[in-house]
Every structure is written in C-alpha cells, then in structure tokens.
Computed example of a mutant assay.
Amino acid sequence: MLVLSLCGALAAAVCFGLSSVLQAVGMRGAGPVSELEPKSMVRAWLTLPFLAGVGLDLLGFGFELVALRHLPLFLVQAAIASALAVTAIAAAVVMKERLGRGEKCAVAAVCVGLALLGVSAGPEGANRAHTDFYTALAACLIGLAVLGAGAGRLPGRWRTVTLGLCAGLCFGVLALAARTLPELDPVRMVREPATYLVAASSLIALVLWTMALSGGSVTTATAAMVIGETVLPAVVGVVVLGDEARQGWVPVAVGGFLLAVGGALALARFGELGNAPSGTAPRAAPAAGRASAETAP
C-alpha cells in the first residue's frame, strides 16, 4: 500500500505540472485575455487545452487524497510542490521555455530529494484526529482569512508575500484535514468535520491566492505559497499526527525534504506559465484548492 500511495503522490505531481502547461497553452491560444473583460477569460477557459488541464487537476486531487491516507505529510507535500519541476520540464518541451543550468540542477534536486524521502519515510500516524485538532484547524483557517483580508491593504512585495504565504498555509490546513479523513465513503464523509475543513480551506486558499496574483510577482507568490504548504503541515504531521521516518533515517528524510522543497522554490518562476499573458491565476497552487473551486487554476 505504501508503494501504491507513493505512486499516487507522484502521479498527482505529474497531473498538476502538466495541467499548468495545458492551461497556459489554452490561455495563449485564446488570444489577448484581460481580467477586466470577462468574455475573454471565459473564451480562454473554454479552450480544449484549458479544460484538459482542469480535468488533470481533478484527477490529481484524487491521487493526492489516496497518497494522504497512507503516507507521511512531509512526503506528500514535498511531492506536490515538485509539480513545479514537472511544469518546468513540460514547458521546455511544449512551450520552448529555456531551462538554465541552475534550473536543471533544481529539477535534479527535486528528483533526488523525493527519492530520499521515499526510501526514508516510515508509516503514517493516526488517521482520525481528536475534536480539538479540528477546532484548532478551524481557528487557524479563520485567522488566516482575517490576516489575508488585512494583507490585501499592504504595499507592494509585502502584500504578495503575505497573501502567498497565507494561501499556502490554507492549502496546508486542507492537507491536514484530508489526511485525517477515516475513509473515502461519501455517506460517512458528510458527517466528518474534516470534510468541511477541506471545502472551506480550499475556497479561502483560492481567494487568497487570486489576491496574491492580482498585484504582484507570480514568482514571489509561488515561492511563499510553496513554503506555506510544505513546512508547517510537515511539522504538524510529525508532532501531532505521529508521522515519522524509518528508524535511523531521520537525517536522510530531512535532507530529502530540504532538497525537494528547495528545488521547487528555485523553480518558482514556472508558476508564471498559467499567468501568461493574461494576468489570471496560474497553476502553482496545489490541486486541492483548484479541484474544489476550479475556475482559476
């Protein structure tokens, strides 16, 4: 089951990475697109490549759910962040985006980091969490929403960084909630607080992510988002949910995590793909948010 779940995490990253490129192709193929012209945005969203990208987002979210049920969060979140490496490679092939030496090294770092995480990860901890855990997640989500609303008034770079970080942390809340779903039975899921936290966090994250992109650098927003969605969920998974590395493999797991996330941060500029040339939101955000409120990937 661990091998199958690891394949699910990698499949999710591939889906998200390819989705970004397909959506970028759809946006560019639709001609000039402006946020101020809803018709032009709808025209772009209805292109075949963009719709195919949305389909990949939904498929990727399904793979992510499978992975979250059987793998430590530090491995799954690092794998999801590695979607930027998939985007970089696909963009080089499909869109003729040039990869510099540093970016090629970053792709290699992501691959090596994920390999190290894969061999060092131990069993995941408990699934169903205590009610206090869900209460804490809900309080954090409300706090992030309030902080994000206030950050919208900040000037320049601080606005972009804060909103990107808040969006990433919301996606982290989503991952934590999804990880504690006891089973993927629709009848039972409607009775689980985690289900509603997944829905609420995805919506709030998408709103904050769109705000971050509306007036700042996509690369900056993407880097902040990657940090928010990986670091804190990984720590909570270890401290609260009982995630752990195999005995004696902790240094390897830490090194793999740093390599994978560091490589993703170095590739943050490929979050720009879905934004060119329109100014609409690019991929960069992990799928769960897009899958739940998908109009801006």
Results as ranks from 00 to 15, higher is better:
49 P>V: 05
154 L>I: 10
179 R>M: 01
287 A>P: 01
180 T>N: 04
175 A>P: 01
59 L>D: 06
120 S>E: 04
11 A>M: 05
158 W>R: 15
218 V>C: 08
15 C>T: 05
168 G>P: 04
284 A>Y: 11
36 L>E: 06
231 V>L: 14
161 V>S: 04
284 A>N: 12
125 G>A: 02
191 R>T: 13
28 R>S: 10
105 C>S: 14
280 T>E: 04
258 L>F: 07
149 A>R: 13
266 A>R: 14
163 L>Q: 12
204 I>A: 13
101 R>Y: 08
175 A>C: 11
75 L>S: 11
247 Q>L: 13
41 M>R: 12
271 G>K: 05
171 F>G: 08
53 G>T: 11
15 C>E: 03
122 G>P: 06
91 A>C: 03
172 G>N: 05
5 S>P: 00
58 L>I: 15
88 A>G: 09
125 G>P: 00
146 V>K: 06
124 E>K: 15
229 E>A: 15
82 S>C: 12
89 I>P: 00
45 W>C: 08
56 L>K: 14
66 V>W: 12
32 P>W: 02
99 L>K: 10
159 R>N: 10
215 G>T: 06
56 L>R: 15
108 A>P: 00
89 I>G: 06
288 A>N: 15
178 A>H: 08
240 V>D: 07
102 G>R: 14
95 M>V: 13
272 E>I: 10
245 A>D: 06
58 L>A: 11
175 A>E: 05
9 A>N: 04
47 T>V: 05
218 V>N: 08
175 A>S: 15
79 A>T: 15
251 P>M: 09
205 A>K: 03
199 A>I: 14
250 V>C: 11
198 V>I: 10
19 S>W: 02
92 A>G: 13
30 A>K: 07
122 G>T: 07
163 L>W: 02
87 T>K: 06
160 T>L: 04
38 P>N: 13
275 N>C: 04
55 G>E: 07
44 A>W: 00
101 R>H: 11
194 A>W: 04
243 D>W: 02
26 G>C: 01
205 A>P: 00
135 T>E: 12
237 G>C: 02
263 G>A: 03
17 G>L: 08
82 S>A: 15
240 V>P: 07
102 G>W: 12
259 L>N: 01
74 F>I: 14
132 D>S: 11
149 A>N: 13
208 L>K: 03
19 S>R: 03
52 A>Q: 05
41 M>W: 03
297 P>N: 13
260 A>N: 09
132 D>G: 12
284 A>V: 13
80 I>Y: 01
111 C>D: 00
160 T>Q: 10
48 L>F: 11
184 L>P: 01
284 A>P: 04
220 T>H: 02
